[in-house]
Design a protein around this nucleic acid. Structure first.
Lengths: 354, 354
DNA sequence: TGTTAGCACTTAAAGGTGGAGAGTGCTAAC
DNA sequence: GTTAGCACTCTCCACCTTTAAGTGCTAACA
């Protein structure tokens, strides 16, 4: 059976209507409100046929139709009318990023908050992979209890959460010179490369071999997003959506949210290439609950990854709005990255001139 | 009306029973299971009198009795039989703290997890106030973008989350010497004192006055527990308790949990002196929801505050178990603090000998 | 005076009934 | 291909009845 234009139109109406009202859509309401040139009986025939094609389901014979996951996918690909944000929403985004300090961590948090606030869904954000950033400076600060704090300044931020063990007989001065040597060796290289080639370098690193090994080991923890890099905002937003009036669904949902590790998997997925990625229901992804959709966007500017941000909520999600928000936040982030780059370049230039 | 021994006994039975079953307690069940020497009619008389005294309430005439907040308070003060933990619970605690690294942050997280796991309630933990700790070492690491990372080693841990702005014309060497000077000045002093007297010191700090001001300002943020110092574990545990089958209650509960700032207020309160503190219902505390109890313990060893830990859940809480867990975790923490102190002393001694 | 048996009373919860309303599927006519 | 008409199905709600649980009260008892 072919998808006639009228079928598409009706399917679009059903999805739009259901997204807005959460009430199964009837043939009568379609004929009255949207397709005034045909009767409800005609619509009924089309609905029956759409159901046969797998786009619609009914809970019971007299209950109107509800879109299937397949329908949402089709809707997003072909039918959806891109939403425009209201002026006040656009304003909100602008203001949120206007006076942000330079911190990547804070920025990620802000992005997550903005997305959750504007979409009214739970938002998840993962910052850029430190992995791809290059080392600018590396310091080892003695802690006095056999450990040292490893602080790495990368091209994008400061990593300061790793501790390494240091040999008992090592003095602060030793540590300092080890720190300089290692810093010099790694400067300009991306973390990922250090992790891979680091092993080989350890052998040649006579005196401070053990410290070197600890540093390389510590870098391994940056291969995956760390717990503190996964930001969750607006978990309580689910209560604003009628599908979560059922306690079982709430429980299910919150259980997924409680493991940041799983969340990271859900959000990151394999969306390196696509800009916006939509997972509806359990599209084979074991970690996404059956009754949830996940919409994510991976941002980048000038070849640089700016992180992955998204929304998790019921399948009946306001996709036009969510996608519009993600796109506009993306634009704002790009702008920000650009203006920062300019600033940095200017700054670097000045330093050279000195 | 006086509280006869029998009344007390009956009240205790009602509370115990209700805690365990969550079902209103009837006169018949009491007479049959616990007070076999009197009839249900006698128990009924006593129950009516306890109700008059404000200890019991009924939802409807044929519904059995339920303890009032007042009854729980009386129960905890006078009636409760202290619970003993099972061997496996005790084991669990021991194992959890056996091989913990030195990190205060990790320890707090572990404590919170252990408490939530053993009690089956949502647990909140706030680490010791950095505020009271003394400075051992202070470093300013240049970040290269007009900022510096302020790393402070205190007697207990490493604080590494503050950034300060530095003057444009300041070189890395300048920063380093400023760092040394400020470090020397503050060494051995508690953060709280620096915060208070710091203002005065700024004036005398000629050349590096601006940096000094930034440092003193940054320290102010340690006066209150920071967001990352408030650890929440097992939010989903509430689903294991029947009072949270009602979606409204869940919403209410989760809303409170979503603000770490409010949580900190709830947990910390004014329990500096008491070891274990129980708030039942809204005991005047505006932030605690009416239908919630909060049990907290503030630990200390050798005069040193080890943090405040607790449990938040329904008023019908298993107080004997919760209190037993908090007590035993407290003991374990004390042990840990002691053995660490020994280690540290030994370590310091060796260093002196060198 | 405290305790008890007995009984009437109250209430929630569960189950059944019937009508109203919504929506469909089908058929026959256009 | 479209439509009007109608029988059919199903939910929802209001109402009722029954059942079980538990109480309060009273009168008798030790």
């Amino acid at each position: 059976m072919k998808m006639s234009d009228r079928k598409k139109k009706i399917l679009q109406i059903v999805v739009d209507e259901y997204i807005n009202t959460a009430v199964p859509v009837s043939s009568k309401s379609i004929a009255e409100k949207h397709l005034t040139d045909v009767s409800s009986a005609t619509v009924r025939n089309e609905l029956a046929s759409l159901e046969e094609l797998g786009y619609l389901t009914q809970f019971h014979t007299s209950g109107g139709r509800v879109p299937s996951p397949q329908a949402y996918r089709f809707y997003i690909e072909e039918l959806m009318q891109k939403g425009n944000l209201s002026d006040s929403d656009l304003d909100y985004i602008d203001r949120a990023f206007a006076d942000k300090s330079h911190d990547v961590e804070h920025l990620i948090k802000s992005v997550s908050e903005v997305i959750s606030e504007l979409t009214d869904y739970t938002s998840v954000a993962i910052g850029p992979h430190a992995d791809a950033e290059t080392v600018r400076r590396l310091s080892l600060l003695p802690c006095g209890d056999g450990r040292a704090l490893l602080v790495i300044m990368t091209s994008e931020r400061i990593l300061r959460d790793s501790f390494i063990e240091i040999p008992e007989n090592m003095t602060d001065e030793d540590l300092d010179s080890a720190s300089r040597m290692i810093g010099k060796l790694f400067a300009g290289k991306p973390l990922s490369e250090i992790r891979e080639t680091g092993e080989a370098a350890i052998a040649e690193f006579g005196q401070y071999r053990q410290v070197m090994r600890e540093v390389v080991d510590a870098l391994k923890s940056y291969a995956r997003p760390r717990e503190e890099d996964v930001v969750l905002t607006g978990a309580d937003k689910i209560f604003n959506h009628p599908e979560y009036e059922d306690i079982g669904n709430v429980k299910n949902f919150l259980t997924v949210l409680s493991s940041k590790d799983k969340l990271a998997d859900i959000i990151e997925g394999e969306n390196d290439e696509i800009q916006i990625n939509v997972k509806i229901g359990s599209s084979g992804d074991k970690d996404v609950p059956d009754d949830c959709s996940v919409v994510t966007a991976t941002y980048s500017a000038g070849g640089k990854n700016l992180g992955t941000y998204g929304v998790i909520g019921p399948i009946r999600m306001d996709y036009p709005k969510v996608i519009a928000v993600l796109e506009n936040v993306g634009k704002a982030l790009e702008e920000l990255a650009k203006s920062r780059k300019k600033e940095k370049d200017k700054c670097d230039h000045e330093q050279e001139g000195k």
